[in-house]
């Protein structure tokens, strides 16, 4: 069995990417830490033939869902509560912090795309994130979601179709966060 250090080394970035996509930057770090702490606890019992990345993404998915449930129970702050982050620039991207190397290494998040992803039904959202951002094959996406690989593939395809509509210049209906409110001239 590999030293756990090496597991963090190999898969830490992908897990952070999944947490960033599902939760946005403010909660991603907590979810990452919760994920790897839970993984460390269970690691000696992990079966040797397991797909470690799929296993980690499963844990990250569950931690992110926990965070979203906590968020939905928490009082909603000003605004409609659907923002990924209060500090989103007018172009929909969160500006990268200048001085903090950790923030800079995360890079810029496209909050327009992520808001559209987060508006998807949960299965589609997870399938899209795990296949296109965590780079997992559909057999593993299915394992994460508890469905067959075919069902995972369908969920991802449905999600991509919905994103295509949501992100097209003319078809942004149903996504109030991606469109600025009209102002009086």
């Amino acid at each position: 069995m590999e030293p756990f250090d090496r597991v963090v080394e190999e898969h830490g970035a992908v897990v952070l990417r999944v947490c960033l996509a599902l939760l946005g930057p403010d909660e991603a770090h907590d979810a990452w830490s919760d994920t790897f702490l839970a993984a460390l606890r269970a690691y000696p019992r992990l079966r040797p033939d397991s797909n470690v990345e799929g296993w980690l993404v499963t844990i990250a998915h569950n931690k992110a869902m926990d965070a979203l449930r906590r968020r939905s129970r928490a009082p909603v702050p000003a605004g409609d509560g659907t923002e990924l982050s209060p500090s989103v620039g007018s172009d929909g991207r969160r500006p990268a912090a200048g001085d903090d190397p950790a923030e800079a290494a995360i890079g810029q998040l496209d909050c327009t795309v992520l808001a559209a992803v987060r508006a998807l039904p949960p299965k589609q959202q997870a399938a899209v994130v795990h296949h296109y951002l965590a780079d997992l094959p559909y057999t593993e996406v299915g394992a994460v979601l508890g469905t067959s690989p075919e069902a995972a593939r369908r969920s991802a395809a449905d999600g991509i179709a919905a994103l295509r509509v949501a992100l097209s210049p003319t078809g942004a209906s149903g996504l109030p966060t991606s469109r600025p409110r009209p102002r009086k001239r």
Partner: peptide, 24 residues
Amino acid sequence: VTSRLAASVPMPGPEALVALRARL
């Protein structure tokens, strides 16, 4: 859409993990 999606969260660099690994 899939390339916009892939670009929406750049793969974090190793520096992004330094503080997280210390916290872990």
